[in-house]
């Protein structure tokens, strides 16, 4: 895939407000450097993330999606992240079967105190998306 070295991937993060969103906030307030490639959308729980959000983001041209919630056992609503896990796992596998690079859908568990983990995850995901190249899945043929 042709791409210049300037190209930077754009990524949407659906972050649970009780944990990963607060983790991202912590990364910011503790002045940790995380890639500016991520645009964050706050969701009430990882269980709120509808696979439709993921497809819509890819359809809009984002290069990847990160879904992040509370660690297993720590969901504010007890079971939201367990349910999210089933949905996301199926979505990821199915999208791969359709022909979507699995690197474009990523998921993590990041708690409110894990500012460092948030930095690591976003850095790693950004790197992988850079390798995957621009998302041209929904582009009309030129």
């Amino acid at each position: 895939m042709a791409q210049d070295s300037e190209w930077e991937p754009k990524l949407v993060g659906f972050l649970c407000r009780w944990c990963s969103y607060a983790g991202a906030d912590l990364a910011g307030t503790s002045r940790k450097k995380y890639p500016a490639n991520i645009g964050i959308i706050k969701v009430p729980c990882s269980g709120r993330v509808d696979p439709l959000f993921i497809l819509k983001a890819l359809r809009l041209g984002f290069d990847g999606v990160l879904v992040s919630g509370c660690h297993p056992g720590e969901c504010h609503y007890q079971t939201g992240n367990y349910r999210a896990r089933r949905k996301i796992a199926l979505t990821k596998k199915f999208l791969e079967y359709m022909g979507i690079d699995p690197r474009r859908l990523q998921a993590s568990w990041i708690s409110a105190s894990e500012g460092g983990k948030f930095t690591e995850v976003t850095t790693q995901v950004t790197k992988e998306l850079k390798e995957a190249g621009p998302n041209e899945l929904f582009a009309d043929d030129k």
């Binding site: 297993p72 079971t79 367990y82 089933r86 949905k87 796992a89 993590s108 568990w109 995850v121």
Partner: peptide, 16 residues
């Protein structure tokens, strides 16, 4: 039903 249920440990390898 599949999506109303879960096991404590499953499908973990998809998560960082």
């Amino acid at each position: 039903p599949l999506l109303t249920h879960y096991e404590l440990e499953e499908a973990e390898d998809f998560f960082r």
